[in-house]
Design a protein around this nucleic acid. Structure first.
Lengths: 144, 144
DNA sequence: TTATCTGCAAACGTTTTGCAATCTT
DNA sequence: AAGATTGCAAAACGTTTGCAGATAA
């Protein structure tokens, strides 16, 4: 019987190869991490790798993120002041609910914005490539 | 007859006084600048002041922006990677069209998002305080 | 006059870079 | 073996801070 853990690892390795990126342990592990996470920043990636006994330098994380960005694997999100967070592209269209108190980020799906983009292209003579919609406020726990 | 230039300057000075902020030349001039601009970053504010023969330190610009933010005069926008832009609150609800080629920022008005916020508050048990919606793409000039 | 505001210089946190050593293929 | 990738240390950026002197009210 197949080990599901192994199976998933192989998927990540294959994905990297498809993008002409060598499947280093750190890259495989980070891809795995992304599958279970919303936007994460360099520090959080670093912590995750440390907890999984993969030792990498900060610079490597940033280089990895820039490579993933170039290849279209991830995109950047600004949900924290002064630092960039990263998120898988394959997660589909959604928006973020960011708690200003505890920092928690929820995601919601949406159908309104794609429609809006069409209107923008007509009315504003602007070609929309991507969008970012963030709602800042208080999550249910912090509201109390 | 009143000098319209002077008149406007007085409006800015009065606004500052209402917020318990001293009407220094730099602050008055920056408020004036904001009235004619979309989101601008610290460097652009500094350049504008220099062109108007008002000499200030970078630190002063950042302190000014933090004061304006605290007083509710301006808010922060993330339209450029890695740096904060600032914009007047009094401009009403709108979104940004950011050209990834030339950096130009247009604004568009909207009615959809406020409706969306109501739905979010119900469905997600999340209290929305503010939102940020940015569209990235190519402006009409750069599209060609 | 007094509290606010400023310049300066130093510090901070995030991100980038050059280079030599190390890995993946 | 060859080229891609990495660690390390240093630098580049944007932003913040402490303090002493300057300014608006």
């Amino acid at each position: 019987m197949l080990n599901p853990f192994k199976k998933q690892e192989h998927r990540c390795e294959d994905e990297l190869k498809e993008f002409n990126l060598k499947a280093t342990p750190a890259r495989v592990e980070v891809l795995r991490f992304f599958e279970t996470q919303g936007p994460v920043d360099a520090g959080e990636i670093l912590d995750y790798l440390k907890n999984n006994n993969i030792r990498v330098d900060r610079a490597t994380v940033f280089r990895m993120m820039n490579d993933f960005l170039k290849k279209g694997i991830t995109h950047e999100v600004q949900v924290k002041k002064g630092k960039i967070s990263y998120e898988l592209n394959s997660k589909g269209d959604h928006h973020h609910l960011i708690c200003e108190n505890c920092g928690k980020v929820q995601t919601i799906s949406d159908t309104v914005i794609p429609q809006m983009e069409k209107e923008i292209e007509k009315a504003n003579k602007f070609f929309v490539k991507r969008h970012a919609l963030e709602f800042f406020g208080l999550c249910s726990a912090c509201k109390k």
